[in-house]
Design a protein around this nucleic acid. Structure first.
Length: 315
DNA sequence: AAGACGAAAGTGGTTGA
DNA sequence: TCAACAACTTTCGTCTT
């Protein structure tokens, strides 16, 4: 049990399961739905990342069947959590027989009131727009369902405390996503999120500071370590290199080279060093492009590390 | 020619009075 | 609210491979 539970027993679609790990040629994979990655079960290599979450696959397993009431599970991504009654749009009864004219008109009025009541509250209307936005941006960033859901929870929190008023929905959405990512130890930079939001970076930053204060969300400082995984697999680096990069970060932390510095810069330069030392050299430019820090920063950081940690570079 | 280097000036965020 | 400050970026000329 344990990890085994996560291993898909059937090919979902086929192509994924008949893959081989390029590193150890293992054929069993674990899906990590927090980071949205497929990881080799044998050696831990990230095979595929930024998976699109296709939702729970076992909603109707035998065990669950008994517990099922009717309808799908409550879903936070729908503004009323999918729990309200729907009045069908067709003027037909449960036998699919056309309703008499008079009855049809009545159902029409019911439908109208239903919608008025459902969306009457401006907060609910607002949340509805936000949930669409979270879904859109979440898809563009390839975020797993769990993070989108917690973003929605955070948005609701803000909306219910009337903190959205006077701020744009988009900016609050951006904050919710940013915070949800951080809470899941799968940090994305504000820049990354701003890229897909039609709000500018500045406004998102301002909203971020405001909401962080008001909601009192405790966001741990992002750690450079959290970026290393994603960075290394994007650079196609081996596990050894990745672990060495993490090792450098640990030593740099002890030496006081980390606090006060941007975590992305640290991750970038430790990975740069590791890649050179392990003979898988990547250029500063390459790493700079992926991480979004400049080559200059990578240089400054890694020179510091070499000096303070006594690291020898192969020529 | 590409990559690495480092100086200099500019930008945006944090902090403390 | 403002100035001082450190981190980081941009730009650019130079050196190295």
């Amino acid at each position: 049990m344990g990890l085994e539970e996560h291993i898909p027993s059937k090919d979902n679609g086929g192509s994924k399961a008949d893959k081989e790990c390029p590193d150890c040629s293992g054929t069993r994979f674990v899906e990590d739905d927090v980071r949205a990655e497929i990881i080799c079960f044998k050696c831990g290599l990230v095979i595929e990342e930024k998976l699109i979450d296709d939702g729970p696959s076992n909603v109707f397993s035998n065990e669950d069947w008994d517990k099922q009431t009717t309808g799908p599970a409550s879903n936070i991504m729908i503004h009323d959590k999918g729990l309200s009654t729907e009045i069908g749009w067709k003027n037909r009864d449960y036998n699919n027989k056309r309703l008499p004219k008079k009855r049809g008109a009545q159902v029409y009025r019911m439908r109208q009131w239903q919608n008025r009541i459902r969306f009457s509250n401006s907060t609910e209307r607002n949340i509805m727009v936000a949930s669409k936005e979270i879904t859109t941006i979440g898809a563009k960033l390839n975020l797993p369902e769990s993070i989108k859901e917690s973003a929605m929870v955070i948005y609701r929190l803000a909306a219910n405390k009337s903190l959205v008023r006077g701020r744009s929905i988009e900016a609050v959405v951006a904050f919710s996503i940013y915070a949800a990512c951080r809470l899941a130890d799968n940090p994305r930079s504000l820049d990354e999120i701003a890229e897909y939001s039609d709000q500018n970076r500045k406004q998102i930053g301002r909203t971020y500071r405001f909401l962080k204060r008001k909601l009192k969300v405790k966001l741990n400082q992002t750690k450079p370590q959290d970026y290393v995984d994603r960075l290394c697999s994007e650079l196609g680096l081996s596990r050894e290199t990745k672990f060495y990069s993490l090792d450098i970060i640990a030593k740099a932390t002890e030496a006081g080279l980390v606090s006060g510095r941007g975590p992305l810069g640290i991750a970038a330069s430790s990975t740069y060093l590791a890649s050179r030392i392990y003979g898988e050299k990547r250029t500063q430019k390459e790493i700079a492009q992926i991480t979004g820090v400049t080559e200059v920063t990578i240089r400054n950081r890694y020179k510091e590390m070499i000096k303070k940690l006594n690291i020898d570079l192969p020529e």
